[in-house]
Design a protein around this nucleic acid. Structure first.
Length: 448
RNA sequence: GGAGGCGUCGCAUAGUGGCCUAGUGCGCCCGCCUGCUAAGCGGGUUGGGGAUUCAUACCCCCUCGAGGGUUCGAAUCCCUCCGCCUCCGCCA
């Protein structure tokens, strides 16, 4: 949510941002009109309410006077009391009507306001998905032709290692699910431990958050707007399955006023992630690149708006450090305004080289959400004037398990079906330097 | 799942229809006093919206877990929901 005062102070900024996102700038004028009407109706209610309160103060004492005095005084008091009560009753109706009218308009405005995406950063490249800016390319893709063998895709490599089983997952849960087993399971745990040790080294607090959250958390992080169709819901319990630990981490400090001295607060949360992948039928149907459930370590930062840009760079730096440790070639892009999502003002994606696809694919993403989420979730700090001010929030992927596993299996595979383990990961895999196919290939684990 | 209890200002507590403009203590902030510190004394201390303003101050409205209701008037009475605690049952 953006500060609504922009409607009065500088609506043109909002119009420009809407245009850059490919959204409708005309809605800004609708919002300005709604905001004006809202304020006028609310003021009307407040004036009536003030009168009602003044009147109410007179009734109590007068009632006592009507009971305790005698004779003519008593009659006068009773008559006045009757008159006041009548007036008060009329006013009461009028106050209720004014309140209802103002409340109705406030609901309309805030509902419409929730459809407005965050103001884009001036630095974000303008345009649709393809308009991204290439910031950097790191590492060199292997030349498999020169090595004399064609690379197998991650599913083939994983199946041979007995590490990935999508067929049985389809039997149990449907398409886009997978089992990690044997070295596949150990590989995820090793990546988890490497990621968490890196996170701890850099001062992030490790977190195991809830993966089921209420509607405020979901909406507050911006996932119930355009992205709602990708969210699993549990209507019986009014809960949602999170698509990322970003949701429970962001909502963790909702309705809080944080101590400025404690900022930035940095977390690294490990959680399962659930995504319906609606509208992506036919995309990435093979393997585990696009799945309904996976695990991820997500970094999350609460800081002052002034610190946000530097924190964004820091998150990107840690993401790069992790991929460097895994010795995977990648490139970094500055995501275009049309592809930012509701909450982000600026976003850097890291795309890893996938040999069998001969292209770079997104593996991590770092977003600066400025105060957009914080305003919805009421997360504030006291600024130098002592005024509660929304914090800035940022998030970045440290490791999304399936895609990183894909990158490792494909980039580090050998012609004999083994996979080299990057040295940084070896301590977390019992010191082994390779994953090797089981002695007796074929159906693993006693399939018949 | 059943029974009962409880949600008040940062914390603790008072408040059972108008005297609540929510009191008191602690903590915190400012000042006074004071070799220093502590104590003592005085003042301040929820958050949001609006009006006004260059910006303040002052002013108005809302805010006693949330939302409805009763009433001229609700922290207080009624209903629904949420959360916490105790006991019983079930459970990894």
């Amino acid at each position: 949510m953006i500060d609504q005062r922009i409607l009065r102070d500088n609506p043109e900024i909002l119009r420009i941002s809407q245009r850059k996102r490919g959204a409708d700038p005309a809605i800004v004028d609708e919002l300005i009109a709604l905001d004006q009407d809202r304020r006028s109706l609310r003021s009307d209610f407040e004036a009536k309410r003030a009168e009602q309160k003044q009147l109410g103060k007179k009734i109590g004492p007068l009632q006592r006077a009507a009971k305790t005095t005698q004779g003519a005084d008593r009659e006068a008091a009773q008559a006045e009391l009757q008159q006041l009560l009548q007036h008060a009753a009329d006013l009461s109706e009028s106050v209720k009507a004014a309140d209802a009218a103002a409340t109705e308009l406030e609901a309309q405005l805030s509902q419409k306001w929730l459809t407005i995406d965050n103001l884009v950063d001036d630095a974000s490249p303008v345009g649709d998905e393809d308009a991204f800016t290439l910031l950097e390319t790191v590492g060199t893709p292997r030349d498999f032709a020169a090595e004399g063998f064609p690379p197998q895709d991650h599913l083939a490599v994983g199946a041979r290692l007995g590490a990935i089983d999508v067929e049985r997952a389809a039997k149990v849960s449907g398409s886009r699910f997978f089992y990690l087993l044997g070295d596949g399971a150990l590989l995820e745990l090793a990546l988890l431990n490497l990621a968490m040790s890196l996170a701890s080294k850099h001062g992030l607090t490790p977190v195991l958050p809830p993966a089921l959250v209420g509607p405020e958390a979901m909406s507050g992080t911006g996932f119930l707007g355009q992205a709602a169709e990708n969210v699993y819901q549990l209507p019986q319990d009014d809960l949602y399955l999170v698509g990322t630990a970003e949701v429970p981490l962001a909502a963790m400090h909702s309705d809080e006023i944080l101590d400025e001295a404690a900022l930035p607060i940095r977390y690294a949360g490990y959680s399962p992630c659930f995504r319906r992948e609606a509208g992506s039928h036919g995309k990435d149907t093979r393997g585990i690149i696009r799945v309904h459930q996976f695990d991820k370590v997500e970094m999350f930062v609460f800081c002052t708006p002034e610190q946000a840009a530097a924190e964004h760079e820091r998150l990107l730096g840690w993401e790069k450090e992790f991929l460097n440790l895994l010795e995977i070639p990648y490139r970094v892009i500055d995501v275009a305004t049309g592809d930012l999502g509701a909450s982000a003002a600026r976003k850097f994606d890291i795309e890893a080289w996938i040999p069998t696809q001969e292209r770079y694919r997104e593996v991590t993403s770092a977003s600066n959400c400025t105060s957009f989420q914080a305003r919805r979730l009421k997360i504030r700090y006291r600024d130098s004037h002592g005024t509660p001010t929304p914090v800035a929030t940022l998030n970045g992927t440290l490791v999304a398990m399936p895609r990183v596993i894909v990158a490792i299996l494909e980039n580090h595979q050998n012609s004999d079906g083994s996979v080299d383990i990057p040295s940084a990961l070896q301590p977390f895999l019992g010191g082994r330097s390779q994953l090797t196919p089981p002695e007796s290939p074929g159906a693993p684990h006693g399939a018949t």
